[in-house]
Simulated assay, not measured.
Amino acid sequence: MATRTDAPTRREQILREAARLFAERGFHGVGVDEIGAAVGISGPGLYRHFPGKDAMLAELLVGISGQLLTGARRRLAEAGTDADRARPDADRVGTDGSPAEAEGSPAEAVLDSLIEGHIDFAIDDRPLITLHDRELDRLRDSDRKLVRQLQRQYVELWVEALRALYPDLAEPAARSAVHSVFGLLNSTPHLGRPGSLPGRAATAQLLHRMARGAFAAAAGV
């Protein structure tokens, strides 16, 4: 799908409207003609872009899983570059002589960056969260397995980042904490209509604080 600054292509417009309609009324409650009407083309005209609704659903769910993984890898690479530039500050130690992973440390910046990226998705692509929860089982086995594979890789990036900040947190506990935070962040479809939220910035800040608080609680700090 398009980035926030790019004008969406017709194909991307179709996917966006399909996601909205599927989330609102269910996969079987939406016809091809309705998706076409939402983007200003005839229903049969959609077949120049997609062979059918099943293909739209697969591209939506596989696509967002791939986008989240790619975005997380990019954020980790960018945070790693920033950490290398700030390495002298990262080498400080705590009062007990142990490495100080306190506020403002590179490990914290990495985790914050991952949280920010997921919050962007959770706020801006709410229909896809609903779609994943309701319609994942409608995908072909191969597509569903690909979604799960991409999601597992995404989770492991978070687990690694979390344990870098909290080294004493065991891997199974870290993985459970990551899944729990995903559940928290992905609760946005239940927060009411976009206009009823307290504003995008305020919602993002609240979700970020809650995610960091949950991770700190899991680590016992």
Rank of each mutant, 00 (worst) to 15 (best):
T5L: 14
D6H: 15
T9A: 10
Q13N: 08
R16Y: 10
R20D: 04
L21Y: 06
F27L: 14
I35T: 05
I35R: 00
I35G: 01
G40A: 05
G40D: 04
I41R: 01
L46H: 01
F50D: 05
G52D: 13
G52M: 06
D54T: 10
A55Y: 04
A55F: 06
M56P: 02
E59W: 04
L60K: 02
L60G: 04
L61F: 08
V62A: 02
G63H: 02
G63I: 03
G66I: 07
Q67T: 10
R74S: 14
L76K: 12
G80Q: 08
G80L: 07
T81K: 13
D82N: 12
R85K: 13
A86G: 03
R87V: 11
D89I: 00
D89M: 09
D96T: 14
D96L: 12
G97P: 10
A102K: 05
G104R: 02
S105D: 04
L111R: 03
D112A: 14
E116S: 12
I119K: 01
P127K: 01
L128G: 00
L128K: 00
T130Q: 12
L131I: 04
D133W: 14
E135Y: 06
E135F: 07
D137Y: 07
R140W: 07
S142Q: 12
L146I: 09
V147R: 00
V147F: 03
A164R: 11
A174F: 02
V178S: 06
H179V: 13
S180E: 11
V181A: 07
G183P: 03
L184H: 08
G192T: 12
R193W: 05
G195P: 04
A201K: 14
T203A: 15
A204D: 01
L206A: 13
R209D: 07
M210A: 15
G213L: 00
G213E: 02
F215K: 04
A216S: 13
A216K: 12
A216Q: 13
A217W: 09
